[in-house]
C-alpha cells in the first residue's frame, strides 16, 4: 500500500461517524396507491418519492429508496416527538408507516470522492461516474446487510446496518 493510500485511509477512518439522533420512518405504498401517495408527498414535502434507488433531500429530511415502492425518511430526532405518527397521518390510506428509528445504525462518511474503503469492499461499482450523488444501494458486505447512499448534495456517504450488528460493522470499518 502506498503512503498516499495509507494517508487517505487514516483520513477516511477519522471521518466515519455514527449519526446518533435520527428518526427513521419506513414507508411502504399500499397496493395500487402510488399515485395518491405521491400526490400527498408533493403536497407535504414538495417532492415525489423516487421510484429508483435514489436519495433526495426534501423538507429537512433525506428520503432514501428502500426497495420497490418503499422509502426511509431520515430526519433529526427531537425529544418527545415521533415523526412517524405525523407521516402516518399524512399518508393515511396510501401507505403503511412504521417507526424504524432503532432498527439501524447510520454511519456517515464525510468525503467528496469514493474511497478505497468503498470502492474495494462492496460488490457495487462505487466509482464516481457509476455511483453518483443521490445513488442508493442495498447490498451486503462481509456477511452483513447494509444500505449505502451517496448524500444528494455530494458531501459524503451514509451506510446503514442493522442495529444489532453495529459492533461488528464498526470493527469491519476499523480494520482499515
Amino acid at each position: 500500500m502506498s503512503d498516499l493510500a495509507n494517508g487517505l485511509r487514516a483520513e477516511q477512518h477519522s471521518a466515519i461517524v455514527e449519526r446518533p439522533d435520527v428518526a427513521v420512518t419506513h414507508i411502504s405504498a399500499r397496493r395500487g396507491m402510488l399515485a395518491g401517495l405521491n400526490d400527498a408527498a408533493r403536497a407535504a414535502f414538495g417532492v415525489e418519492f423516487p421510484l429508483t434507488p435514489r436519495a433526495l433531500d426534501a423538507h429537512g429530511m433525506t428520503i432514501v429508496w428502500a426497495g420497490p415502492e418503499q422509502w426511509l425518511l431520515i430526519e433529526p430526532a427531537s425529544k418527545g416527538v415521533d415523526p412517524s405518527l405525523q407521516h402516518a397521518k399524512t399518508f393515511s390510506g396510501f401507505a403503511s408507516v412504521v417507526d424504524v428509528s432503532d432498527s439501524r445504525t447510520i454511519f456517515q462518511m464525510a468525503i467528496s470522492r469514493p474511497s478505497d474503503v468503498l470502492v474495494q469492499s462492496m460488490g457495487i461499482d462505487f466509482e464516481d461516474t457509476s455511483f453518483k450523488p443521490g445513488d442508493v444501494a442495498i447490498t451486503h458486505v462481509s456477511h452483513l446487510g447494509v444500505m449505502v447512499w451517496r448524500l444528494p448534495d455530494g458531501r459524503g456517504y451514509e451506510f446503514a446496518c442493522a442495529r444489532t450488528y453495529t459492533k461488528d460493522f464498526r470493527s469491519w470499518l476499523d480494520r482499515f
Binding site: P53, G67, G123, I138
Partner: peptide
Amino acid sequence: PFCGERGNDEF
C-alpha cells in the same frame, strides 16, 4: 429490475 446488476451472492 430494481437495484441493477448484482453478484449472485446477493440472491
